[in-house]
Design a protein around this nucleic acid. Structure first.
Lengths: 133, 133
DNA sequence: TTATATGCAAAGTGTTTGCATAGCA
DNA sequence: TGCTATGCAAACACTTTGCATATAA
């Protein structure tokens, strides 16, 4: 992997954010620094950086992917109303399942994908009646 | 909601399946019964039926949506190699989290999305070396 | 009868890719 | 120097939508 100006700026922009931007959001911001950068390059680099373990993708069901500068595993809270995705800073005890149950024979269990859903503070105060899911 | 021939056939075809077909797969099968049906109608009806709670959508991250004739909540096992999605017939103890933690103040917690991931029996016997994620 | 649902095709959205050129190592 | 990465635009996969017509109630 070549360390290009594009990669450096993408990582730097992503790392400075507290939230989890989409490729397009990142693109807009990076474009202010490298005006000629293309969306394709952003996607390509995001993909490479993810595979190298330098960032994480959050594959939000039914929505655009979002990117996370953190390398450590952690869970997210997704707002059903506005789609915001936040890191959960509280400990979660993972689900328990008896993988020795006969049904699992022949299967390789790698783990779980887990996401907490609800309403973020902003949408919750709007009484949650604007929720679209 | 009008009970049209299209809706009846879609539900009937979906209910007869053991797996979780995509809209396109359902479309091909329904087309054998109603040759002139359009993909748009299939998508529209799948959406309506889901909102009515008559079927469920499984919003697979990064992949096409899949549909499930079951109405009850249950979890799925997703194969990282071939993408197959199966119902897990084994009890899973949901994750535990202290929603009284200060971080949750102002948020409305509705629950979790949870998916078990790994390799299905077929891909596991291929030694898992074809896995693409 | 009449408003909702359909078929068709076009448009949308998010993401990937082919290719000639630019630029890192 | 040589090969990977870039910019650009076209292609993609999946899903949604506008519109005139058909049809359930």
């Amino acid at each position: 992997m070549r360390i290009t100006k594009q990669k450096k700026i993408i990582v730097s922009v992503l790392s400075k954010r507290e939230d989890h931007p989409t490729a397009t959001e990142l693109y807009s911001e990076v474009k202010e620094i490298i005006p000629k950068i293309s969306l394709g390059t952003v996607y390509r680099n995001l993909d490479i950086l993810t595979k190298k373990g330098m960032i994480q993708v959050i594959d939000v069901a039914g929505k655009e992917k979002r990117y996370d500068p953190k390398k450590e595993k952690h869970y997210h809270f997704k707002c059903l109303s506005c789609g915001a995705l936040e890191d959960i800073p509280v400990a979660i005890k993972p689900p328990e399942v008896d993988i020795h149950d006969a049904w699992f024979d022949g299967r390789v269990v790698e783990g779980f994908t887990l996401e907490m859903i609800g309403l973020c503070p902003i949408c919750a105060t709007k009484r949650g009646d604007s929720r679209d899911a």
